[in-house]
Design a protein around this nucleic acid. Structure first.
Lengths: 156, 156
DNA sequence: GTGAGACTTGAAGTGGGCTTTAAGTCAAGG
DNA sequence: CCTTGACTTAAAGCCCACTTCAAGTCTCAC
């Protein structure tokens, strides 16, 4: 059996069938139809779903995932060049996200290590509060040099 | 001026005032009131908001953030022990999230490096598809040994 | 003390990411 | 054939994380 029904795909991917239909409607995965109009999925869709869900769990939106997956070929098995392109395009985004996390983690640790701990006077943790009244927006916990331009839309 | 109005806090934190009220309603930050019933915020709330938004951007929910912040003392400046507790409690969660990301990134790279690229036959990338029909649920892109128990609820 | 503008509340609205419901159609074992 | 269970659709509903709205109150520079 080289193709999967929606129920089989759902079980093996660990998601609900409704989620699979939703992903298809958003163009994240594809299906062919039987003569009776039922969906049949290639095994490759398992991979895509794992990719989708992992990306989501680390804070990336379905739109971002869709953009990435859209760079893969629609109707043939992805080649080395296909994946290479996707990987190169995503790497900075993933690295950015990893950096955010490490920064958050290390900030927490650093706050303990530095010894000041008042959180109002620590220059390490508080470079902005009582020192730099120019320029709006948040600063710490962001990568160096990154200051948000717009009033902080949420990353969905 | 040691306390901030909601507008000042909003500008310095880079979020909307409505978001600040929402965070307060969820117990993520606290405010005192003036005689005229307006909110006034301590500088420490700037720090909390940076913490909240960073955590969100890397895929953690407000509930998780709330739980973490709840371990900090309500009405005094956090001590070393307070932060130490929060840091220790969060570290595994953050490390888990970082691992997910690195796994996603390296999987993408590895797929290119390994040379097989069919994505149907690569043992590295496809340990499950045609090999392990026992046990439902997704596998790859998850930390070793981690298999989901429940039908895959989304991390909000 | 007064006017502009920042603040207050509760309720309703929005967008993302699905799930549920209703009313049916298809696939396959007995 | 017929039943049972998996499948189909569109539309409505739900939770999260806010935003917007309406109607009114407070603050402060002048």
């Amino acid at each position: 059996m080289t193709q999967l029904t929606i129920g089989q795909l759902a079980e093996r991917a660990g998601v609900a069938t409704s989620a699979i239909r939703f992903y298809e409607s958003r163009g994240l995965i594809r299906a062919v139809r039987t003569t009776g109009n039922q969906r049949r999925f290639e095994q490759a869709m398992l991979r895509r779903i794992a990719f989708i869900r992992t990306a989501q769990r680390v804070g990336l939106s379905l739109d971002e995932v869709a953009d990435a997956l859209a760079t893969l070929p629609a109707h043939r098995t992805p080649t080395k060049a296909d994946w290479s392109r996707l990987s190169r395009a995503w790497r900075p985004r993933l690295d950015e996200q990893i950096e955010r996390l490490e920064r958050l983690r290390d900030k927490l640790d650093g706050c303990i290590g530095c010894g000041c701990l008042s959180l109002r006077t620590c220059a390490l943790n508080n470079p902005d509060d009582e020192v730099a009244p120019r320029g709006p927006g948040p600063v710490f916990l962001e990568p160096t040099g990154v200051r948000r331009a717009t009033p902080a839309r949420r990353t969905p």
